[in-house]
């Protein structure tokens, strides 16, 4: 069992969902596709980027 499978199975147990071998194979493919972008987001310097309060996606951000 590699690190990814350990992560999936322990997380699934906490979330109270089962993970079949088919599920795991598809999840591995998803991780291959999205993992690098997730890692890049995790490493990004967003310290000076604050979320937009009272976000209204139908309008431009305030002060613009």
């Amino acid at each position: 069992m590699d690190d990814f499978e350990r992560y999936v199975r322990s997380g699934a147990r906490l979330a109270e969902v089962g993970v079949s071998d088919v599920d795991l194979a598809i999840m591995r493919a998803a991780q291959a596709a999205y993992g690098p972008a997730l890692d890049a987001l995790d490493r990004a310097d967003l310290a000076d980027v604050w979320p937009e309060p009272d976000l209204d996606p139908g309008r431009p951000p305030p002060n613009t």
Binding site: Y7, V8, G11, A12, A15, V17, I26, M27, A30, Q31, L38, L41, D42, A44, L46, V49, W50, P51, E52, L55, P61
Partner: peptide
């Protein structure tokens, strides 16, 4: 797969959105 996304990444996504 999505159920297992760490919560911190969801919050970082909102900063990216802003």
């Amino acid at each position: 797969y999505e159920l297992l996304f760490p919560a911190r990444l969801l919050l970082r996504a909102d900063r990216v959105r802003a």
